[in-house]
Design a protein around this nucleic acid. Structure first.
Lengths: 340, 340
DNA sequence: TTGTACGCGTTATCAA
DNA sequence: TTGATAACGCGTACAA
């Protein structure tokens, strides 16, 4: 194992000072061209790599940003990461990735470590179980730039980039209404999860906008998993037949898949008997039969916008707190029966 | 913005030396219990966080490992990352994630940066376009621990963890043979990509094992994308009808999906007219019609095994070069026509 | 254009 | 048990 080459060694070999080596390697103007060539040359020969750790220590800047992801296998997040990575690559930053596994204490660990590592900024999507925002507050107070993405904590002085869930839920519900559906049910997410609440609000707003009376019986609290959608739909189908909905707005695509299974099991057709729409454009949405109308969430865009904001904060290009919204896009497929 | 608290400051406040502070905070035995309590207490009050960068510089260890991912949105890799993360979290390492986007020059950039950042080790899955292994060789020569995962480069002195592609391809092909298929085609991956070659070998081995003559016409080089599978299958279907295969082994699931599209377009039925099997258990495999028989790859396990090997190398240099294999699992669905 | 002195925040080492 | 000193590898600031 060859010992590592340092700027000092190069300097010694060449009989010049470390500073000249540093200057030559960093393309500073005040170096003789001959000297520079000499230095660059021997640096290459010796296989010199600058020690970024030492550099970070003196410059008090690591060119790294810490990212906290709640669940890396949830297809949404890799897309976000790709968006983040695209920008950090261009702007010369590295990503330190941590995974909270939806666990608040692991998230806290991650945040502590990331701080110790002197990341220049933080990109956080909160774990579902997080209840104490004190740690975020501390980070903000300490002056470390922080941007929330997707799952935001508002009102504590940090910028955030998220989807306009309420608007999107309204959009997809109105799409159904405009195509003549009136008895529309909603399989809602858990109340305490922000997206559950926002999507429910959007659903209600669409009804209001179109003077359709709200029927509490047609709103069933489901979860975010396929199984939850299945159970919730079963519940709806246990109502008297004349109270059955003609269309269903599911809180997300997995829940919609579960609901479709329940609908199929009782021999009803989609969208003939019951139309259904989802939310999130899961990769399976266009493959299922019938293909699912849904809201496509531009995860890549969220990642991109979030890092851009963060890097601007880090580089002092701007300092204001913003709530950036990435719009959802309605993807119309056959499950809503509006395609002809 | 509060300035950062250092060990020195704590020392000054308490009228003791920095070393004592350091010792107290690191739970060294040779510190008076009273002193320790005092130090720990004021550290907490002041909101002290150790500067891991400074620590790294002196200890020459960063407790970070660099990970190179070719394509983060490919569902296989997030699973790998989760496996990696699970172990690094437990063993106190952080992940620096880089993304080559299947581009060899970006991969080289990543490797250079990661080296500069003094990562303790490297986990690499090579980009498809990489042709020059010199850079890996340099890393190995420099003594930086390196483990390849999934896409390996063999014979250059690094350990690797991968799927037994050849064995698995043989397995899935023999499954077809055992159910009576004789005219079997293979949509192969690009020759120079290792998995392409290995799977082709497995395919040929299965034929040999069962005394089925190899027919070069039935092996078409495709790529790894859906479009590639489509084009390759079109080519097969342009053969005279009596030369058409009765079954197809695709190099991976996306290629299989493309091929299925081509088969459907000419009005043939799957598996009735042509049976087909894939490789990788894409999330869509069980949703497509008919559901695709395939090989499930345990990505999580690959990630786990790869970091474990790497951390062992980092922490105990004597463990040797290994080629670790994670077995594939045959998932039988309807597309191969063997389910009854 | 080049060099010297010093500091970034921490830990190892040796002395007290 | 504690402290003084010297690193780790680099860049800033100033001097030559």
């Amino acid at each position: 194992m060859t010992k590592k080459v340092t700027a000092k060694q190069i300097a010694n070999i060449l009989g010049i000072s470390t500073m000249t080596v540093s200057r030559a390697l960093n393309n500073r103007p005040n170096v003789n061209e001959k000297t520079r060539k000499m230095v660059v040359e021997t640096a290459r020969e010796l296989g010199y790599f600058p020690n970024h750790i030492a550099k970070s220590l003196v410059l008090r800047k690591t060119d790294t940003i810490g990212v906290v992801v709640p669940e890396i296998t949830h297809s949404f997040f890799p897309e976000v990461i790709r968006g983040i990575e695209e920008i950090t690559y261009r702007r010369g930053y590295q990503l330190i990735l941590t995974h909270s596994a939806e666990n608040s204490s692991r998230e806290e660990d991650a945040l502590t470590t990331l701080t110790s590592m002197q990341v220049d900024g933080l990109l956080i999507s909160t774990a579902q179980t997080v209840e104490d925002y004190g740690i975020y507050q501390q980070i903000i107070n300490r002056g470390l730039p922080l941007v929330f993405y997707d799952r935001c904590v508002k009102g504590i002085g940090a910028s955030c980039v998220s989807l306009d869930d309420e608007e999107s839920a309204c959009l997809v519900t109105e799409h159904l209404i405009q195509h003549g559906y009136k008895k529309i049910a909603h399989l809602s997410g858990p109340e305490r999860v922000l997206i559950g609440k926002a999507r429910l609000n959007g659903f209600e707003k669409a009804l209001r906008n179109n003077q359709i009376p709200f029927n509490q019986k047609l709103v069933v609290e489901a979860g975010l998993q396929e199984q939850d959608g299945y159970v919730a739909m079963k519940k709806l189908l246990s109502l008297p037949k004349d109270e059955w909905p003609r269309a269903v707005v599911a809180v997300n695509d997995p829940a919609a898949f579960g609901a479709m299974k329940a609908i199929n099991e009782v021999g009803l057709s989609i969208p003939g008997d019951i139309a259904i729409v989802g939310f999130s454009d899961d990769i399976r949405a266009e493959l299922i039969e019938p293909p699912l109308t849904t809201i496509r969430q531009n995860a890549y865009e969220i990642g991109k916008k979030a890092v851009e904001k963060l890097l601007d904060l880090i580089e002092n290009k701007e300092s204001g707190i913003e709530e950036i919204v990435v719009k959802g896009e309605l993807v119309i497929r056959r499950s809503c029966g509006c395609t002809e």
